[in-house]
Design a protein around this nucleic acid. Structure first.
Lengths: 219, 219, 219, 219
DNA sequence: AATGAATGAGCGTTCATTCAT
DNA sequence: CATGAATGAACGCTCATTCAT
């Protein structure tokens, strides 16, 4: 979580990067971090490159050593968020087979992220609205869970695309509520329960699934 | 209201004031209509006042006879949409008492509107995202239905704000899917069914309610 | 010759222009005049729109009420010069039939213009170099004279395009010499004589033609 | 000369200094060649130092090891062209005494260069326009030939500066025609003939001189 | 000597806003 | 009220130049 540490994602061949490269990578990260922060508070339209540069602590011209245009900054931020998103999702529900449980875990994870990292969440909401491409990144993971849940007899939906749209927009809406209107007790479970029910899981069962302890929570 | 009582020209016939008012109202309407069209295609950021004036067939300066600033144009568009929204809702479910049915009718009405008037829909989606105030206009109607449905034993939700958020965002998400990704058979019923289920209506019952003929449809 | 008068070129239908139009036309003229002045001293590359606006006494944004882009400013200046050029040429050699005499008159007129209006001349030279299209404006007039001179047995050139290129570049070169290196006695006649000779007019005859009094000089 | 005697790596062989010098000279040449190529295609304004560095295969910072500023690059290119120019001229008309013949040879040599090396020619034209200093390099050689031709009774010009201006601009104009508008049969002789005639050489004689075989052509 | 990341002044352009007519 | 020319701040972007490595 340290802002400036994270010098290695674990996958980079150690000796590939010279010092110059390291510095370049760090500046790039500063820019992306700054962009996320601005997104969160000012939206897409509010990302002015001067502001971005200032927030990142570099001069305006420097931005163009890393991105060819404003458009590419937005793209890069979207990509960055998509990657972080994937990591969020993948790390959580690895060992779970039930589609319904996986979906519940995903929804609750995002809800909890909304509680603990409002900036990231606002940026995510902004980007999902702006870059339709982001939606497909989400959809990929989601579709697998929906289909699994249906095969396993838990989900009963009439139209897959509409089901996905429903899950995504409802979850984002709930995240937005959390971020903008403040705390709600057990918001994660409530959201998950509603989503499961929307997909045809009976009320009692939905409550049970949504109430399971999250993996890694030490339950 | 008028700062200057327009005593000016002298050769004004008796009904000038009326005419003036009519014309004034018409110009205002032209501006709002034009703004809606632009919103639909260019989003909030794309509403440039020069473009707006051109689209409305007036000169740029004229805009400032009706709105004090760009910000106020956006506000007015939001208000306008809210009013149209109210009309949409109120005209449909007047005679219905069941909260669940009313909600189903509302969702389906909006879904059908999305099919028949994509521009209006896109504008609505844009404005709802932009002007948080719009959400409360929606919420007013919605809350009554939710509470009625709960009283009547149909809805079982754990948190009213989250339930409202869920209904609004899921419906808007479904509308967006319709508008951007094209036709879906019975999209209105599917959406209504999912929303009802999310609120705790059992599967079979939700399907029944969502499948009722819409009032005024001549069924 | 007054900078700001010239309210009518004589051809504009008197009542067509409202006051607003007049003002717009005047500002446009201020911009073009300023552009010419800048061209003369700074060349094409030196025409910065901020500078242009300042020189014309308007704000930078105003430029864009008259030209869509920098490119269009340059085009407009070229066109303006071409028009002025045409007027220069047409008013002088109307009554003359001999191609050789007409050419001599043209060359000398331009040389005299170079002496009396160095700014205009520098701008012309700049524009001719930059906008190849200008060359054709010149070429149109020139070609007629060359062909007439040849028909009349005065000119003997092997290749018309090269002859035209020769006349144009030699004249512009001579104008440039005048403008940059200062006065030369009878520069106009000397230039005309050389050009005539280059086109095959014998030395004595060339001197005679180049020495004829210019029409309108009151000789 | 070197500020730091590059004592670095340790495994440098004896002739390192020579090699260093050679490399330095080679890099400088790469830069100048690249500059010429860019000049030819993009003009003076189009020479961006980043582009120059890339075209020369070095990094942008390296340019500043060879030139103090952009201005000095332009100067150096001018000088380089002047030197190459001198070589062009000097190698051709060494053994010729007649000023008229020498001038004819020079004009034709340049015309042929325009045919065989358009890039060099475009660069030359650009630089002559931009760097007035170049003109004097040309003038030096030219003046001698003009004066010789006059002494020998071939040339009859009224003003030496204007004669020089005429020769230079006419020749450059003809070269430009060749480079931009394509092939012309015997363009070199035609140009030389016109220039000679402009300087007072009678038509027949000018044709003869311009038609002489070029030295070194194996005639 | 070579590198290339960083700088920042300056440019072309847009656009909300004002105001004389 | 309507007009539309004028304004000027702000933006995206370029590029000559510097400097630590």
């Amino acid at each position: 979580m340290a802002k400036k540490a994270t010098p290695s994602t674990g996958k980079t061949p150690a000796n590939t990067l010279t010092r110059g490269h390291k510095k370049k990578a760090r500046t790039r990260r500063q820019l992306l971090d700054a962009a996320l922060r601005i997104y969160a508070h000012a939206g897409v339209g509010g990302l002015a490159l001067n502001t971005l540069a200032e927030e990142a602590g570099v001069s305006n011209g420097t931005v163009y050593n890393y991105f060819r245009s404003r458009e590419q900054v937005l793209e890069a931020v979207g990509l960055e968020l998509a990657v972080q998103l994937s990591e969020q999702i993948l790390t959580v529900s690895e060992a779970v087979d039930s589609g319904a449980e996986r979906l519940s875990i995903a929804v609750r994870t995002f809800m909890n992220k909304a509680r603990t990292d409002p900036d990231w969440t606002r940026a995510l909401i902004t980007v999902v609205r702006y870059a339709e491409g982001m939606r497909s990144a989400l959809a990929t993971y989601l579709r697998a869970d929906l289909q699994a849940g249906r095969r396993q007899g838990d989900f009963h939906y009439a139209h897959e695309e509409m089901a996905m749209s429903m899950v995504i927009s409802a979850t984002l809406g709930a995240m937005n509520l959390l971020v903008e209107d403040g705390e709600v007790e057990h918001a994660d479970r409530i959201a998950a329960e509603m989503v499961l029910q929307a997909l045809g899981v009976p009320r009692g069962e939905a409550g049970l699934i949504a109430g399971l302890p999250l993996p890694g929570e030490g339950g």
